[in-house]
Design a protein around this nucleic acid. Sequence first.
DNA 1: ATGGCCAATATGATTGGA
Length: 261
Amino acid sequence: MRIATWNVNSIKQRIENLVAWLKERQPDVVCLQETKCVDDSFPREPLESLGYNVAIHGQKTFNGVAILSKFPFDEVKPRLPGDDGDEQARFIEATISAGGRIVRIASIYLPNGNPVDSEKYPYKIRWMERISHYVSETLKLEEPLILAGDYNVIPAAADVHDPAAWIEDALFRPQTREKFRSITNLGLTDALRATTDAPGLYTFWDYQAGAWQKNNGIRIDHILLSPQAADRLVTTGIDRHVRSWEKPSDHVPVFADLAIG
DNA sequence: ATGGCCAATATGATTGGA
């Protein structure tokens, strides 16, 4: 099974690039973030005609997550548990059966958290605590579990072009990295870092200030695996060439191949 | 990492993103 994640920064603006990339990379499952549209106007048809089942959880203007899967969905659940008052569409979970095995997949769009002296940072931290709780509960199922998405977390200095410039930022400040480690320390494997130690592997380049041309990037899109999934990890990749296409997202797809299904 | 961008909103200035 090939599973990927991509923050598309508007599904409507990116549908042509998404279709082109799906044909090229042929993923079985794709977690999308920042779809930025309500469920009724999500462009399902071009994806369904490529053979994907489509599960969506969107809202007007902002956020929005989705899962595409060539395997049928057994169960789909939007919303991260732990705060019924949270109206932001940042989480959807689905289970599929692949190779006679239940696989649980979540598409995650973790809050940015900037500026750190606003309410946005405590919201990010609370969201990370909710993910922690979800992970500790879900790992008890001992299933292959894949949490893929835009975490808005730079895990380590090797994951940013200029670490010093980011040290106060909500994506990289020590408290954020500490919280991220507390999540992975529950027993999750960062798929990319399980397959390579190379520095300079980025998934996001800002539209501004020539960031792409200068390779001024950061790695914030991650595929995290439960032990039952990590044991079947074969390889990973980042499709950075997609950033140079016409009308690009500021993020590029990340994928992992698992020996499942 | 801010000068420089992009998307959504009923539209032209504001908000959000990272």
